[in-house]
């Protein structure tokens, strides 16, 4: 067990998972990921390279992945906007890679405070074309490590890029982490281009100039994403068994919501937490199951109503949802969240 920052835990996880290269560009509040990678990767005979831009970094990742190795990059919203080109190409060429986004406040340069306003950017696309990004949402330093490892596994299993979507608080916070043993589960990658006789016939591309070929390629991708949607929904519940109200939240907001649930229960309001661990695929099935017995659903997020859209889509029952949000790099204050839930439960919101 070791006390580390969430951002450091990402690199511990990556190294344990057999990640061979890190390509990145500094940006607050994600920079400690690059600092930690710069310190450890070369000492283990692996590659750390500070790229000339976010665009170059994601394309170096594209090259390293095409060459058959586990590889990653990390950034924050403004950098992810630039990397989105590469995400589309990675998805199109079916190349596995891990991309970590430690969200700051936007739009534009915004500020470096924590926000969750890259939700739509990550969960709904970001890059062009028909593709989906698997999005994992850690809420602790432990999960920054565990979900980075999981991201490499999912990326290889489905040959597609996977994002770990954290926020400034989860990245900057130090907590005790129990690290697993080295777990490089990289499968054989017969499709890679390794510059040898065996892979000489291989070609990795996302261009299908012939319309029928691109239609077939898209159909195959869509089938793959449907399989992911069916198999990879993940969530965690807390005190939901007898709950009269469930707060839906992820990342730092779910940490606050957890404390609010405890405080509400002390006052006789049976609150519970529904925490999506995958934002895509959104844990629809779990949420619908919970919503059948929990009458009131409340959504809390550090964005102006992005998570709540997916909650509405998942429930699809027209029920009124409670809502609390903040932005500008500011968290929802614990007492503000608590009061909003109380008002909602009493029918006043």
């Amino acid at each position: 067990m070791k006390l580390v920052r969430g951002n450091e835990a990402v690199i511990y996880g990556a190294l344990l998972a057999g990640c061979q290269s890190y390509y990145g560009y500094p940006i607050t509040p994600a920079s400690e990921i690059a600092h930690t990678a710069a310190y450890y990767f070369p000492q283990l005979g692996r590659t750390f390279l500070q790229a000339e831009s976010e665009l170059a970094a994601i394309n170096m990742v594209y090259g390293a992945s095409a060459a058959g190795e586990r590889t990653m990059t990390a950034s924050s919203g403004p950098g992810i906007s630039l990397k989105s080109e590469g995400l589309s190409y990675l998805a199109g060429a079916e190349l596995p890679a891990v991309v970590v986004n430690v969200m700051r406040a936007g739009p534009g340069l915004g500020n470096i405070g924590p926000e969750q306003s890259d939700y739509n950017q990550m969960v709904k696309g970001g890059g062009h074309g028909n593709y989906r990004l698997i999005v994992l949402a850690p809420y602790s330093a432990q999960e920054m490590c565990d979900m980075t490892i999981l991201a490499f596994e999912l990326a290889d299993r489905y040959r597609t890029p996977v994002a770990v979507l954290a926020d400034g608080v989860i990245g900057q916070m130090m907590e005790a982490v129990r690290f697993p043993k080295p777990c490089d589960t990289s499968p054989a990658k017969p499709w890679a281009v390794r510059g040898d006789a065996a892979t000489r016939p291989n070609c990795l591309t996302s261009i299908y100039l012939d319309f029928d070929s691109l239609e077939a390629h898209n159909r195959r991708l869509i089938m793959k994403f449907a399989e992911i949607e069916a198999r990879e929904q993940r969530w965690q519940g807390y005190m939901l068994d007898d709950a009269e109200v469930a707060i839906v939240a992820y990342g730092v907001t779910s940490r606050e919501a957890k404390s609010v649930c405890e405080s509400l229960r002390a006052d006789g309001i049976k609150a519970g937490l529904f925490r999506p661990k995958t934002l895509w695929p959104f844990p629809k099935e779990g949420l619908c199951e919970i919503a059948e017995r929990v009458p009131k659903i409340f959504v809390a997020e550090l964005s102006m109503g992005m998570l709540i859209d997916d909650v509405r889509l998942a429930l699809n029952d027209g029920r009124r949802l409670g809502f609390a949000a903040n932005y500008g790099g500011k968290l929802i204050r614990g007492d503000a969240l608590r009061n909003a839930v109380v008002e909602f439960v009493k029918g006043q919101q």
Partner: peptide, 28 residues
Amino acid sequence: FDCGNIQVAHGRAPAVASGVTRANPGNF
């Protein structure tokens, strides 16, 4: 070209090639 082939985004070939050569330094 009868080689291993990778097609890439506009302008990014040198970055992609950097990733490939770092992964497999024996490649051309």
